[in-house]
Design a protein around this nucleic acid. Structure first.
Length: 284
DNA sequence: CGTAGACCCTGCGCGC
DNA sequence: TGCGCGCAGGGTCTAC
């Protein structure tokens, strides 16, 4: 479900509800996610701690806690986070059955709860020492943050990363060791915006086109954030609102439909097991 | 070293 | 109506 824009939208909508709150306890309902949820670690690192702030690295949501610990949540493909207020939590409690696939519930001192639901169980939740977070195996290999004010994504960076490589540009763009946050939707969209064919070898892209691609990635991601993310099936922000960038998608999910620029039917192909959408008229 | 493929898991929409 | 199939926004590991 979520790429960088969706995680960023969740972060922004979640932050006002969580900052300054204190975690009373973390309830693990189903531990078997991609990595097992460690209830003992949550009890040790999160219970009783105040929430200082929310950050994002790549597609990971980082909840910084008092005491030097960060609660890390990754939404995987189908993860959702939602805050429910005290009244709703109370009425739910009387309703017995918890929502399906609600694997983790963070209880807050105000009575509100942060619930993590993830049907496909590709998500993750774990705690790390804040100071050494970047050294963790899940973070240390990550590439540049595309929208960073300083050191964001540039054409030079893409060109340098591509040096000595072969392979098509679309999987390259989704390689998190190069640039983070670009998933399957926005890779197709950015390549359309840059006019580059998804199968073009990274060895055959000139400096000027790398510039265009870097700019397109930043532009597509920023526009998606501004529009609340892309809601194809089930994405919603922390307050349950759907995004609406899906109406701005140029190619993703539009196989057979006319290109909005040239009218050619949008085509679909498979790369590295994922669907790629492109316009044969606009992308070379 | 870089790349391709399998795999983790559940749900949905489609064609029959 | 029911069933099987393919597909789905992510990431990691193994084999070449």
């Amino acid at each position: 479900m979520p790429e960088l824009p969706e995680v960023e939208v969740v972060r922004r909508t979640l932050a006002p509800h969580l900052e300054g709150e204190t975690i009373t306890r973390v309830e693990v309902r189903a531990a078997r996610l991609r990595e097992p949820l460690d209830a003992a670690a949550f009890a040790r690192d999160a219970a009783g701690r105040r929430i200082l702030g929310l950050r994002r690295r790549a597609k990971y949501l980082l909840i910084d806690l008092e005491g030097g610990t960060t609660l890390v949540i990754h939404l995987g493909m189908s993860g959702r986070l939602a805050v429910t207020d005290a009244a709703a939590a109370g009425s739910e409690a009387t309703n017995a059955e918890p929502p399906l696939h609600e694997h983790l519930v963070v209880h807050l001192a105000s009575g509100r709860r942060l619930a993590f639901r993830d049907p496909r169980r590709f998500g993750q939740a774990f705690t790390l020492p804040t100071a050494t977070l970047d050294a963790d195996r899940r973070f240390r290999h990550l590439g540049v943050e595309p929208l960073a004010a300083q050191g964001g994504l540039t054409g030079e960076l893409l060109e340098r990363a591509a040096a000595g490589r072969r392979g098509p540009v679309k999987p390259f763009l989704m390689d998190a060791t190069v640039v983070v946050g670009v998933g399957n939707i926005y890779a197709s969209e950015a390549l359309f915006e840059a006019g580059i064919h998804p199968k073009r070898s990274v060895a055959r892209i000139a400096a000027q086109r790398w510039q265009r691609l870097a700019a397109a990635v930043r532009d597509v991601l920023q526009r998606a954030i501004d529009q609340g993310g892309t809601t194809l099936n089930d994405f919603s922000d922390a307050e349950g609102n759907a995004g609406y960038f899906q109406v701005s998608l140029a190619v993703y999910g539009r196989e057979g439909e006319p290109c909005r620029r040239c009218g050619e039917p949008v085509r679909r192909l498979t790369q590295a097991g994922r669907g790629t959408f492109y316009c044969p008229g606009c992308q070379t």
